[in-house]
Design a protein around this nucleic acid. Structure first.
Length: 289
DNA sequence: ATGTCCACAACATGTGGA
């Protein structure tokens, strides 16, 4: 099973990149952030194209800002929008959506930016992360995967130049501590685990040729519970999606999982309602001519 | 100093957010 997360910076503007990317990469579960569309507009934009590719959709958005979604070819059950009992600014924003896909509890999250350290928005960011941690802890962390734009660089190795970010959000100790508290439940940063010493970024500012100079940050993460982290076959950043005409400023993060070890979860198993094959009824593919 | 993009209001370009 292939999982992906991508901050698309407007689903409407990114559609010419999003559909070919789905066709090329064939992810089973896709978490999107910054869709910037209300749910009806999101579905009107491309629900037909998604259905044609076999995706079910859980969209949780608002006009203009924020907005998250989960696309799944591995089932989509128990959808929950937002952070139940989570903080607002001042009202709750469309920054999280949850669903169960192929036996995994998936969260697509767009963590508040924080704007300036010690601002109200920064306090909101820390509160939001604490509530996210509590919700994951109250479920089954081992089979949970939190994917999205976390808006925190976990360590100084995750920014092109720590000095350039001194005094800015994304690298402060309270933010990193809040992320560490979330991971302490048992969530693994699977891309860093796979590439422990490499220069790996997921976001490059549009300005000043930052991408072409590879001056970026790693702020989009896949945080996988123990049982999921044990199945990771590959984990990488899809830098190709940041190149070319009309890219997002973020690249997708991709994770491939081996089949579940006991084979009792995952998209390859027919649902309980599927009729059992009876002798004499199975057919081989027929030639079309 | 900002080598940018996006959404909105509104129709030219300014503003706020990232």
């Amino acid at each position: 099973m292939r999982l992906a997360t991508w901050n698309v910076n407007s689903a409407k503007q990114r559609l010419p990149r999003l559909l070919p990317w789905l066709d090329e990469r064939q992810p089973d579960v896709v978490c999107l952030q910054e869709t910037k569309l209300a749910d009806d507009a999101f579905l009107a934009l491309f629900s037909e194209e998604l259905a044609a590719r076999g995706y079910e959709v859980a969209a949780h958005g608002e006009a203009q800002w924020n907005g998250v979604a989960i696309l799944s070819k591995a089932g989509l059950e128990d959808v929950v929008p937002g952070l139940p009992d989570g903080p607002g600014f001042p009202h709750q924003e469309a920054r999280a959506v949850w669903a169960t896909c192929g036996g995994l509890r998936i969260a697509s999250v767009y963590v508040p930016n924080g704007r300036e350290p010690d601002s109200d928005h920064y306090a909101y960011k820390l509160d939001w992360l604490a509530r996210l941690r509590d919700i994951v802890a109250s479920g089954d962390p081992a089979t949970t995967v939190v994917l999205g734009d976390i808006n925190i660089a976990p360590t100084d190795a995750d920014v092109f130049d720590p000095a350039a970010y001194a005094g800015h959000t994304h690298v402060t100790e309270p933010e990193r501590s809040a992320l560490a508290d979330l991971q302490a439940i048992g969530l693994h940063d699977v891309v860093r685990d796979r590439w422990p010493t490499e220069r790996v970024f997921s976001y490059w500012d549009y300005r000043a040729g930052m991408f072409h100079k590879d001056l970026g940050m790693r702020i989009d993460l896949v945080l996988a519970g123990d049982a999921v982290a044990d199945r990771v076959q590959a984990a990488w950043i899809d830098r190709k999606a940041r190149k070319g005409k009309g890219p997002s400023d973020h690249a997708p993060v991709m994770v491939d999982l081996d089949e579940a070890p006991d084979g009792d979860i995952g998209p390859m198993v027919p649902p309980p309602s599927a009729p059992a094959a009876r002798p004499g009824t199975a057919k081989l593919p027929q030639s079309k001519d």
